[in-house]
């Protein structure tokens, strides 16, 4: 399956600002989609779509800040760059406190905006890659049997096979087989890598709960 192309979403209630941003961003080859309101964005944005959001702070109906809160509630990781007008600095500060990626004051230098967008897209790609990797590891660990999970827990504690066999009340040979299975299913090349993978998972994901 091919990855969807990262898209810059522009949400601004002013048609002229919206169109000019689309024109500018397309002139530098950035795929851009514009929306006139926060509600329109929430209704159409698929969370799987990578990109970033260029958002006007001050809009009627739902403000940029409210949209940011909605996205936070939904667990969306899309980086948000706020654009603010004159005297909106306190709002921009609030946005930053709620995890905004950056903010710019209107009117801005095109290069400033483009630089921030590039950084935001890079951050989004990194976040998504990390989430995907996490997901891949989680799915691998899901295939472990309860017994293999027990062996995994002891392995990550650094216990030798002999001790494990005694702890579990099985033969050393059986431990060796489980151990090989854990390595095979997790795809870890070494014990060190296996430990790193386990650390990446939440406690309930490690135990299969």
């Amino acid at each position: 399956m091919r990855e969807p192309t990262p898209t810059v979403f522009v949400v601004d209630d002013d048609e002229a600002v919206r169109n000019s941003l689309r024109f500018l961003l397309r002139s530098v080859g950035l795929p851009t989609q514009t929306l006139a309101s926060a509600t329109e964005f929430l209704a159409t944005y698929p969370p799987s779509q990578p990109g970033c959001l260029v958002l006007d702070v001050r809009m009627p109906a739902m403000s940029g800040l409210e949209l940011q809160q909605q996205l936070n509630l939904r667990g969306a990781t899309l980086p948000v760059i706020f654009v603010t007008g004159h005297g909106d600095i306190p709002m921009a500060v609030e946005a930053m406190q709620h995890g905004a990626f950056d903010f710019l004051q209107k009117p801005f230098r095109d290069q400033d905006l483009i630089d921030r967008i590039q950084k935001a897209l890079a951050k989004d790609a990194k976040t998504r890659a990390a989430l995907k990797e996490h997901d891949r590891i989680r799915r691998r660990f899901e295939t472990l049997t309860p017994r293999e999970r027990e062996v995994l827990a002891l392995m990550t504690q650094g216990k030798p096979n002999k001790v494990m066999a005694a702890d579990l009340g099985v033969s050393q040979r059986t431990v060796e087989i489980h151990r090989a299975r854990v390595m095979e299913k997790s795809g870890a090349a070494s014990l060190a890598q296996l430990v790193r993978m386990v650390m990446d998972l939440a406690p309930e994901e490690r135990t299969g709960g």
């Binding site: 169109n19 000019s20 941003l21 024109f23 500018l24 209107k106 009117p107 095109d110």
Partner: peptide, 19 residues
């Protein structure tokens, strides 16, 4: 605020033309 909107649009278009 209102004045900022057309100014922003003008700046964006002009910079895009330059590019």
């Amino acid at each position: 605020h209102e004045l900022n909107q057309p100014l922003t649009a003008i700046a964006n278009y002009a910079q895009a033309c330059d590019r």
